Simulated scan of single mutants.
Amino acid sequence: MKAEGKTRRGRRLWTLGMCAALAVTVLSASAQAQQGPTALRGTAGGADSPGAYGSASAVAAAKPTWRPTPAGTDVRFRGLAAVGRKAAWVAGAEGTVLRTSDGGRSWRDVSPPGASGLEFRDVEAFDTRRAVVLAIGEGDASRVLRTDDGGATWTETFRNDEPGAFYNCVSFFDRRNGLAVSDPVDGRFRILATSDGGRSWRVLPDSGMPDALPGEAGFAASGQCLVTAGARDAWLSTGGGDHARVLHSRDRGRTWEAAAATIPAGDPARGVFGLAFRDRHHGLAVGGDFTPELPSPHAAAVTGDGGRSWRPSDQPPPAYRSGVAWLPHSRSAALAVGPTGTDLTRDGGRTWETVDTGSYDTVDCTRAGTCWAAGEQGRIAVLARR
């Protein structure tokens, strides 16, 4: 099945279907205060000291690998939030949400009642009790739900009523302020905002949003197409158009500036899939073509000016990658992940080395240095050193 010539609806079905045939590991950077919701994930479980998996430099030197933990299900997880040394949330297909508080020895099913028809692709957790999950899809399939009691009860806080909208990712600056992004509506990406921790949402005016390119959209592959750093900066990644772009907002989503990325696009299956910023200036982008067996040259890029310009990695990952994250407390080490493996950089994204061949869809780390991955067939794993 080819992605060429697809309509926007076709691209979305391709993302839901064909992309679901892949395994993508996404490592969303946590632990850094500059990284918005990931800072919450790193601190919510308490003042963690460096944990069992060591410092960022130790992990980088040891060539990390993933140690699976039993989840008791075979659904696919694309959303994950690490909130402490032993606590994490995952969200995925069939409206499934799981939570652990014992380092993955056991996972508790805390799925919202009646949500089996929803496709969860992102979860943002503030601590072991409070979390927000995003369901993707056209029209009213795009929804946001929140829990304040560890998943015992859930409240639907947003249901999309715009037929042309399709929400892909959600991200928070802090415990109250966050954004969600939809594919273009009437020619511009649509931004949803909250100022009360996801209890209510409003659509922001699109007057400050540049026009979308023909065929341009986001990718709901891992929850990393929208990221934040600090109190006001946000970035969103795109593909599908003639060229991939990264859009940057300095005012919590009210206005945006677009910059061309060096990762190839020009097809509904190609573009930038994942972003990670360790501060307002230094960022990484990964992507490529998620079509199975197709090559993805130039699958990574770096910026040192807040996303105003991007340059390709000198030695990129060998294949498509949809997720990338800075290792906690590191200014130069990061991981990029995808269906064929995990790659490590020790020089800020200039060169990458494959360190694991496992398949996952999403990953997150805590301030303590504990990292989790989740993906197809109910796979959830913890980063270990060998």
Rank of each mutant, 00 (worst) to 15 (best):
V132A: 08
R85M: 06
R78S: 14
R146F: 05
V181E: 00
F273V: 02
D127R: 09
A62Y: 05
S359K: 07
A88E: 08
V246G: 05
L118F: 15
R129N: 15
A91R: 04
C19W: 08
R386I: 00
P328F: 04
K63C: 09
E4G: 07
G358L: 07
T362W: 06
G341P: 08
K63Q: 15
G287M: 04
R108Y: 00
L236K: 02
P70N: 11
H329G: 14
Y360I: 03
M1Q: 13
A31N: 03
G84F: 13
D74P: 00
T155V: 15
H329Y: 07
P113Q: 11
Q35R: 09
M1N: 13
P317E: 13
I191R: 05
S359T: 04
R190P: 04
A44K: 12
N168E: 15
G369D: 10
R311K: 11
T255K: 14
V324L: 07
P68L: 07
T291G: 01
T303E: 02
G287Q: 04
E216L: 11
P339K: 06
T303C: 02
A39C: 10
L80R: 06
G241Q: 12
R254Y: 14
V90K: 01
D211I: 00
G274P: 10
D364Q: 06
D122A: 12
N160P: 04
G117I: 00
F126I: 04
R232I: 03
G378I: 03
D196L: 12
K63V: 02
I136P: 01
E4A: 15
T262Q: 14
P339S: 15
D314S: 14
P64G: 10
T357D: 15
Q224T: 08
T25S: 15
A325K: 02
G215K: 13
I380K: 01
L192D: 00
R245P: 00
D279M: 00
V26K: 07
R108V: 08
R190Q: 10
A334Q: 10
V272A: 01
G51T: 06
A300V: 02
L344R: 05
G287R: 08
A3K: 03
R385I: 01
A299F: 01
F166L: 12
D267E: 15
R270T: 00
V246T: 14
R129T: 13
G271C: 08
P339N: 12
R232F: 07
F173I: 04
R199F: 07
F277P: 00
R280G: 02
T155S: 10
G95M: 01
K6T: 06
S313H: 03
E4H: 09
